[in-house]
Simulated scan of single mutants.
Amino acid sequence: YATYFKLQEAAAEEAEQQVDPRKARSRLVRAALMSEASMASRAKIIVDHFRSHSSPRLGGRAKAMVVTSGRDHAVRLYQAMRAYIDQRGFTDCGTLVAFSGALTLDGIEYTEAKLNGFPERELPARFGYTRADDPNPPSVPKPEHRILVVAEKYQTGFDQPLLTTMYVDKILVKLAAVQTLSRLNRTHRLKTTEDLFILDFANRPEDIEQAFQQYYEASVSEPTDPNLLFDREREVMAYQLLVEAEMDAFVTAYFAAFQGGSATDTAIMKAHARLYGYLQPALDRFNALNATEPDTAAEFRRALDSYTKAYGWLSHVIGFENLELERLYQYGRFLLRRLPAP
């Protein structure tokens, strides 16, 4: 958080003249991060990112969690998000808050139940509700909640498969980092690793990597230059295993099957069968190449895997309007599942 370091430098001289500099800096930093302007800025970033990059995923079912450092932080950030949502007239990112007990801020007492408008025990079910999966939707639509702001609640043991995105506004260390971020790991029939994204306001990447190190042998650096995608696309297409007409037919069928957001499991299975049919010619060409030039086939697989991972991650950060990039991503990630194991 760049604000933190700037404030340390700005406050150092005055703090040393008056009181214990460590206490002064700590209080000044906290006051700044908890200020109305700071909360409004983070609220806007969270809401805008969710609506632009996360909300459409899983056929419009995707949900997000915002992790805060304490109850006052959770309430103030929740209020800032609600204010921004109301100001902009957004109707597609209903927000809830979760914290324990009662909290008094500026002379007003807040509880989770008062802010949400229903008892605490109902929160998991209400947050998990989606109209797309309601077998008997009422004539008056039930409220659909997409974002949950939490303070020391639902960071462990919360099993919500529709969570794809997390906004972290709290220092996470050791096991707490692993348990918190792993809320996104719950599986769903429409969910892939490319749907997952974490926007972290508080932690350094190396600290999170260290927390996970004892559970994983390696970590992967994410691409930082969007232009790399065009290089990787050219690399994939240079193998001449993919045909644009076949890719066009595939993505047309894919969006027709999945973009409505209300497909049943049976419909999804049928759609997958049709989509695999569009992949068969490329699969046949790959198998022929693999039989004669296995090293080249392996290089193609690595290039395609590298492209889909890069696109899946970068698409959370920037909106791509290049149809060829999107076409290769959708076609490529399905084809990778069909390629025979090395």
Rank of each mutant, 00 (worst) to 15 (best):
Q160T: 04
A245C: 06
A202V: 08
P119Y: 12
M65G: 01
H49N: 10
E235Y: 02
L7T: 11
P119G: 10
D295S: 09
T91A: 14
G60P: 04
R61G: 02
P21F: 10
R42Q: 10
Y311K: 07
I108Y: 14
F320A: 07
R61D: 04
M34G: 09
K142G: 04
D248W: 05
G94K: 04
L314G: 03
S41D: 11
P226D: 10
D20R: 04
K142R: 15
G277M: 05
A298M: 01
L339T: 06
N290G: 02
T91C: 12
L328I: 09
Y331Q: 03
G60D: 03
H49A: 12
P141F: 05
A31I: 05
A64L: 06
F99G: 02
H188Y: 15
L289G: 01
T165H: 11
D72S: 13
L336G: 02
V251G: 06
R302C: 08
H49C: 08
F99Q: 00
D48M: 01
L314C: 07
V178Q: 01
A256Y: 04
Y216N: 08
A10H: 04
N287D: 14
E246G: 14
F230E: 14
D134M: 02
A64P: 12
V29F: 05
R302D: 05
L335Y: 01
L33S: 12
F230P: 01
K6S: 09
L199G: 05
L96H: 03
F286E: 00
H53G: 02
K114F: 07
S219K: 11
E9R: 06
V97I: 15
H145Y: 14
Q155T: 15
E13K: 10
Y311F: 15
Q160C: 06
M269P: 02
D295Q: 14
R337N: 10
Q155H: 07
H53I: 11
E36C: 08
A310R: 07
D169M: 02
F201C: 02
R183S: 11
A98Y: 01
G107R: 09
V149C: 03
M237E: 05
E324Q: 09
D72I: 10
Y4A: 07
A303L: 01
F5Y: 08
Y278Q: 06
R183Y: 14
F286P: 00
R274P: 03
I268W: 01
S139C: 11
R25E: 12
A282D: 02
S69Q: 13
E326H: 07
F197W: 12
Y216F: 15
N322F: 03
A31Y: 08
Q17W: 07
L162E: 13
F201Q: 08
V97Q: 02
